[in-house]
Design a protein around this nucleic acid. Structure first.
Lengths: 237, 237
DNA sequence: CGTTACCATGACAATATCGTCACAAAAATC
DNA sequence: GATTTTTGTGACGATATTGTCATGGTAACG
């Protein structure tokens, strides 16, 4: 099972089959944010058309589709020799236990009830991909075109790599985890250096300076803004 | 009841790790009723003892155990080369989303909140077993043109054989299992040398050096990259 | 406009970390 | 039993990183 025939930086395609546009777009947005490629389908037939052209790494299926039930779609997929192995997560508004069990027995690998937390959906998607692809998919933090892959310890701005020291990396990570939020010096000290380290306040300034320098060639240094008397924040202007 | 019944001659062992006797017995009862063999453990250590003697097809773990958290148990299992592939379902009274995500990210395959419906639990168990049954243990690992056949103890780069010592081999294997992932020294020590061996940190460096030397004739030595302050990673640049 | 508090910046020394080599012990091979 | 290979460790120089300080600049405010 642990055959790594493809390299992990290869795009991981997730097919979303969901007729509600709002939910569909939100899921696509969340997926792209995490570094996946989201393919969208608004109906069962649209999904089948997509599946003729490409083979996603995972499928998220809504139970109630306009032209067929999600169950029917799963049946069709599981009958297709080429794609029948693909992990499928069912997503539905119905909380009825009966549906869950039916979905799981008919070939779904997982079942989530709407309104589903995007975080939980992402976690479950990663768990299934871990099984089917044999390796962990990467976690990505991003703010516009600043993208950090913490597990790979890699930062890119607009696809170009940025070289950071360990402290700078941790500092940027904190900023990315709190975009548009004002971070007090003390807060930064606690989170980057740890609660019981004795470091001068000004040290934060210096490391912010160094982080800005590293981002300067990409013209992103101005995104780390000074808030006089308090600290810094990551934001566009 | 279940549409898909397991054939009786095929013993499917399910390990239940749960300290609450009532729940444990109820789960064991349900499992046996469905044709599974239920093995019971009331604590984390009891579970580990069991795992020394047998390898279950699936494990159901309660989050809160008397001697360790379910998460710790999962960590231990996922570090064991022999049983690390076993599907794990977390079961817990806590409904907090944070716990769910933590469990899934740390290696659980599924997560159920108590009080869990036995029917749903059974359905999910069957869904996971359906996946893991057709589990093939091909021992081929690769990263681009670096190919390892673990069972044959053979490594080739671009079809040309590479001679490695045992430690170098295990080290490269770890890298291939975690491509593009930053591996901390401690993590490397745990996985290549074992958890209870006493070896200096710097030993890792020396073996990385030796592995690089072995890969140098093939111009792949630069793919093992140093991340100052933490460890190493296998990645292209 | 002047004062004050606050910050950006560059320089610097101390430290941490890593790559490399050499060597001895242990294990494997012949 | 001799030879070769493998392995872990210490040493050392090279380099990266880090924290602090001094200085000058800038925003805030009356």
């Amino acid at each position: 099972m642990s055959v790594l025939t493809e390299s992990p930086e290869m795009h991981t395609n997730i097919l979303i089959v969901e007729d509600d546009m709002a939910i569909r777009e939100m899921m696509a947005f969340s997926l792209k944010r995490e570094g996946f490629d989201a393919i969208k389908a608004a109906s069962g037939n649209e999904a089948l058309e997509q599946l003729n052209q490409m083979h996603p790494d995972l499928i998220v299926v809504d139970w109630g589709l306009p032209d067929m039930s999600g169950i029917d779609l799963i049946d069709t997929i599981r009958r297709d020799d080429v794609i029948k192995e693909v992990p499928i997560i069912m997503l539905t508004a119905r909380a009825e236990e009966h549906d869950k069990i039916k979905g799981l027995e008919r070939g779904a690998d997982d079942y989530l009830t709407k309104p589903a937390s995007m975080l939980e959906l992402m976690a479950r998607i990663r768990a299934h991909l871990r099984r089917s692809k044999g390796f962990e998919t990467s976690h990505k933090l991003s703010f516009h075109d600043i993208v950090m892959d913490a597990s790979a310890h890699e930062v890119k701005v607009n696809e170009l790599p940025v070289n950071l020291s360990l402290t700078e990396f941790k500092l940027l990570k904190l900023f990315l985890q709190n975009p548009n939020k004002l971070l007090a010096r003390e807060h930064i000290l606690n989170h980057v250096w740890g609660r019981n380290t004795v470091v001068e306040d000004r040290t934060v300034d210096v490391h912010v300076l160094r982080l800005r320098k590293a981002l300067k060639p990409h013209e992103r240094d101005k995104w780390i803004q000074t808030v006089r008397g308090i600290g810094y924040k990551l934001a566009t202007f």
